[in-house]
Design a protein around this nucleic acid. Structure first.
Length: 424
RNA sequence: GGAGGAAUGGCAGAGUGGUCGAAUGCGGCAGUCUUGAAAACUGUUGAGGGUCACACCUCCGGGGGUUCGAAUCCCUCUUCCUCCGCCA
């Protein structure tokens, strides 16, 4: 959610920027927010004045009662009715305006960073790096065939016990998955990210805090009986740890890593997108999160970017890095780098990480602030997160890239975790 | 699941209808003293809204109510503690 102060100060500039970079016109929403905000403040002033009058009368009544002047006290008392009526009316108006304002604000996306390329769709994303590699000299199979051939993943079994998109990992497939998780967690720990093991189910307030609610309600599994949601990413519980917090500047940056399964309904997905491990309803992911001061967030973004890149490099997979264009940029993000690994079996790129700086957009909803060392005043923090990494697509790319006539070769960095170096 | 109790500022902890945004202690910050530090002493120290700045308004777990006036009374929800039951 954008800070209303920003809209107050330069709504036209913000509208221009959104149009230029995101190619979307939000001038109506911005103007509406501006209008409601003015009205709201106006109403508040009137409300406050009336309350102030009532407070003064009350104090006087109290004083008179104490002095024993009951007659005068009762006289004044009878005069308060009108004031109370007025206050009630203004109060209703005020909360109505507050609701309206929030409704509009929820619709306006984050303002992109200057680095974000203009564009309307993923074809406008900027490839800022692409690694070189040599194609293996074999008849390349897609990962779902490899998974079957070596008995690593059983998709049909998942359908039997749950439904499509819930695969069962078996034997060395399961061990490889666990090895990757362990590897990613250890790497993050070494890089100074403190590990958190968080709930996989969150309440409504947490969903609002990180922006999944109200807009993306349909993308989460909802436990209606208890009004809880299965997490679509560890970002939700981890970032919400700091909801409504006022931190000290010296606490920052806060760096966390967490492994969780992620649950996504993925309504509307179909076809080759959902083949094999490409898109699942439940998948494992290791997530890194940072909370920083306003000055430090872009340094932190670079640090996280480097961390993710290093993971992929250590696995030896071919990859590329994209800077997302305005049209493809997430609603809450100011700048996002996507990491994609090559799927040789499908001849396509698979997104395995998305590293974003949300600046104050999430923090504003979360009411996550810190006391600035500069002036001691509370300021909204900057929040960032990124996958490090999403498991299934890494697994897909890895199976396909390391397939040989003898079997699937395990990258050296993983061998200490798997205990084997070949799947045959 | 049943019966009781509790929720107050960064923390601890008073306050049971009228200058209470809230005593006191600890912590934090600034100063005095000191070569420096500690101790001691003095001062200062919550947040949000609003304003050019004041004024002013709001916040004592969340929501609602009673009252001229609520941290204080009533209803409701949540969480925690104690006891009982059940259980991985």
């Amino acid at each position: 959610m954008l800070e209303i102060q920003r809209i107050r100060l330069n709504k036209n500039q913000l509208a221009e920027k959104l149009l230029e970079i995101r190619k979307a016109d939000f001038s109506n929403e911005l103007n509406e927010a501006f209008r409601i905000d003015e009205l709201k403040r106006n109403t508040q002033q009137k409300l406050d004045d009336n309350k102030s009058s009532l407070n003064k009368l009350s104090a006087e009544i109290g004083k008179l009662f104490k002095e024993g002047n009951h007659k005068l006290a009762n006289e004044i008392k009878s005069e308060t009715g009108v004031l109370k009526e007025k206050i009630k009316k203004l109060k209703d108006d005020f909360s109505q305006l507050e609701l309206q304002l929030n409704e509009v604000l929820y619709q306006i996306p984050n303002i992109p960073n200057d680095l974000v390329p203009q564009g309307v769709s993923e074809t406008d994303n900027e490839v800022i790096y692409e690694s070189e590699f040599t194609k293996p000299e074999v008849n390349l199979l897609p990962h779902w065939e490899l998974a079957k051939k070596y008995n690593l993943i059983d998709f049909e079994l998942g359908v039997k016990i749950t439904g499509a998109g819930f695969p069962v990992y078996k034997g060395k497939g399961a061990i490889l998955q666990r090895a990757l998780i362990q590897f990613f967690l250890n790497q993050a720990n070494e890089a100074g990210f403190e590990e958190l093991l968080v709930p996989h189910v969150v309440n409504e307030n947490s969903g609002f805090g990180t922006g999944q609610l109200p807009d993306k309600e349909g993308q989460m599994y909802h436990i209606t009986e208890d009004n809880l949601y299965l997490i679509p990413t560890a970002e939700v519980p981890i970032t919400n740890v700091y909801r409504n917090d006022l931190l000290s500047n010296d606490d920052l940056p806060i760096k966390h890593v967490g492994y969780t399964p992620c649950f996504r309904r993925e309504a509307g997905s179909y076809g080759k997108d959902v083949r094999g491990l490409n898109r699942l309803h439940q998948f494992d992911k290791v997530e890194i999160v940072q909370i920083t001061s306003q000055e430090e967030s872009y340094r932190a973004l670079t640090e996280m970017q480097n961390h993710v890149e290093e993971l992929i490099k250590q696995l030896g997979l071919p990859y590329r890095i994209l800077r997302l264009c305005g049209g493809d940029l997430g609603f809450t993000s100011a700048l996002t780098y996507d990491f994609e690994v090559l799927s040789l079996g499908q001849d396509s790129w698979l997104e395995v990480s998305s590293v974003s700086n949300f600046e104050t957009f999430q923090a504003n909803r979360l009411k996550l602030r810190y006391k600035s060392n500069e002036d001691g005043k509370p300021k909204l923090a900057h929040t960032l997160n990124g996958s490090a990494l999403a498991l299934p697509r890494i697994l897909a790319s890895l199976l396909e890239f390391y397939q040989t006539p003898e079997g699937i070769v395990i990258p050296e960095v993983l061998v200490p975790y798997t205990g084997f170096n070949l799947i045959k």
